[in-house]
Design a protein around this nucleic acid. Structure first.
Lengths: 119, 119
DNA sequence: GAAACCTTGACACATTCGTGGTAAGGTTGC
DNA sequence: GCAACCTTACCACGAATGTGTCAAGGTTTC
């Protein structure tokens, strides 16, 4: 599996070289380096870069949004604090939305329980 | 249970009136309104404002970060797309972190199953 | 050893976020 | 009816995000 240098990676992913460096700086896609320090993008990184672009286009999210999601994924304290804060709001009528998140997890448990008790 | 007007709410929460309006605009804390359109902050809103401030101080997150988390909570498509993108990265050695998120949900199911089968 | 790549670092610029102010006008309480 | 509040709508301004370009210098390839 061969790797692409930054300009090649830019060509096949639609990002500019400048942006590839910036994306790396945000911690979202970090290529490996050659002995001399050249960025080397493997198949996995290229795929991630493409899907990252899709994610942005489809939902209009910013890089810092995704970076925050990644931070939440890796920091349980943060994640639980945020979830707690959000769930406290689910009581209010206009925010039925927020409850969906919880309900989502809740339902997973219910489905799981249903499956187990049915057996 | 009486409600506070914006300046009173500002006084007891530490936010400025200006920021209370801004926070409302972000969709994070929306007070009810009096017939004349005055913002009325109840105990729940006041509490949410205080804990929001704590959340920011403790983890150095921005309002837009929390707003994005809230958006993810309410938009399953978005949430699952982001989670999928993040988990695709968990394979890479330096990102063991990200896997924790998934493992977290996984563990909840496992604990649930353990509790059920133990009974 | 020169052409064509790569690196980091900087300057620049538009856009958004966070925050304060101020102006023009409605509401409330005496 | 006036003082003290509230509203929305702006202008402003620093900090962060997103993006391009350019300079000074290392690497690779012929």
């Amino acid at each position: 599996m061969q790797s692409l240098t930054i300009n090649e990676a830019a060509a096949t992913t639609g990002w500019s070289p400048r942006m590839l460096r910036y994306v790396e700086q945000t911690g979202l896609v970090a290529p490996t380096r050659s002995p001399a320090g050249y960025r080397l993008y493997g198949a996995a990184e290229l795929q991630r870069l493409r899907t990252l672009k899709e994610l942005q286009a489809q939902f209009d999210v910013s890089l810092s949004d995704i970076a925050f999601a990644q931070r939440m994924a890796g920091d349980r304290d943060l994640r639980e604090s945020v979830q707690a804060w959000l769930s406290a709001q689910a009581r209010r009528p206009e925010d039925v939305q927020a409850e969906d998140w919880l309900r989502f997890e809740q339902e997973k448990h219910e489905r799981l329980l249903a499956a187990v008790t049915a057996a």
